[in-house]
């Protein structure tokens, strides 16, 4: 695990932007099927290198506790129990290889809140 793969920061930045666009698209109703282009970009990233590529994961709504080392969280509100991801500032970015295994190359940055 310590053989770190160095990932050009530009890839991470681009993926963050794609994620932002995707997030914004969810809240608007647009007639030009921009979603398709976004999906294409995601596919391109997924197959960026011949045997590997990048995928991002939106952890919105997922449960959170201290074992989740794939997230960097800020805990909002009074309680620190039953935490759920309520806001995603940056998605989790993974490097996927052909064998299907993934490695986290950038943690997700999120806000979590207690949901009872």
């Amino acid at each position: 695990m310590n053989d770190r793969i160095t990932v050009p920061k530009a890839y991470i930045d681009l993926l963050d932007q794609v994620f932002e666009i995707e997030k914004k698209l969810e809240s608007i109703n647009e007639p030009n099927s921009i979603g398709r282009n976004v999906n294409r970009i995601k596919e391109i990233f997924e197959n960026l290198m011949s045997d590997s590529g990048f995928i991002f994961q939106n952890p919105l709504g997922e449960k959170f506790n201290e074992t989740r080392t794939d997230l960097e969280a800020s805990i909002a509100g009074n309680s620190a129990d039953n935490l759920v991801v309520t806001e995603v500032i940056k998605p989790i970015i993974r490097l996927r290889t052909n064998s299907g295994a993934t490695t986290i190359v950038r943690k997700g940055v999120v806000v979590v809140e207690s949901k009872l």
């Binding site: 695990m1 201290e66 074992t67 794939d70 490695t103 986290i104």
Partner: peptide
Amino acid sequence: IIRQDGGFDSG
């Protein structure tokens, strides 16, 4: 216990 992609650590 640690997941090998670095996304889980039991503590």
